[in-house]
Design a protein around this nucleic acid. Sequence first.
DNA 1: AACAAGACCTGCATGC
DNA 2: TGCATGCAGGTCTTGT
Length: 267
Amino acid sequence: MPELPEVEAARRALSPVMDGARFTAVLARRPDLRIPFPRDFISRLVGETVRAVERRGKYLLATLSSGETLIMHLGMSGSIRVTPGSSEAAAGPHDHVVFQMSSGATITFNDPRRFGFMTLIERHARHATLSRLGLEPLGTDFDAAALARACRGKKTSLKVALLDQRVVAGLGNIYASEALHRAHLSPRRKASTIASRAGAPRDSALRLTRAIKKVLNEAIARRANSNDRFRVYDREGARCRARGCTGMITRIVQAGRSTFFCPVCQR
DNA sequence: AACAAGACCTGCATGC
DNA sequence: TGCATGCAGGTCTTGT
């Protein structure tokens, strides 16, 4: 499920019950998530106070008073439940981690496919993937010039480049397709074509940055991922929703993943 | 170095 | 009904 908007929604749910709160109990019910828990995961958490819950791309980061950071990733099917009061009895299938906080809340991490994980690190820079994440699409330094720079010289398709977390952090398979449609750019274009030879942003880069922000902000504002709101994702064979366009949404496979686009209005 | 393909794991929809 | 197949919103590793 989770791309940046869903992760941001999780952050906003966690922040009020975690910020300034202490871990009073930690339950790791199933040890074999994508990354195994570090040794002493529980003892390093219990008693610690959360300074803040932040998000970087699709990663949730809870900084602790000890200086360590709790990293949470929802993978493909992960979700986080926040319930008031102690509700250990409610732990169900695929509830892998349960936090009891001094704020009174119970936080439950559920993940059927177990592509998600939780771990503890001493410093952000120490985490290989985290330290290599690309532009934060809702951050202040995300603009056409930065995106063009990140795509310069890239021979992959635009869609595959947008999926690469080292280019833009947080876009996933749905919103990469949605942003490209909104920008009227073909997912098959070479990524480097949004920059001039010298690396300056073309008009397409400007349209794409605006489209990415718009698509993500709208999704955050509306919270739920209801399919009928998508312009292209999972709409193969349906009519293009772009103003004045009579095209039909097409599905292709790029880097092993479905891409949906309109071949008429996306060039 | 950059890219494609396969791997990880479970659940759901489809078709026979 | 049962069973097989293919697909899913993410990343990591392996091989070219």
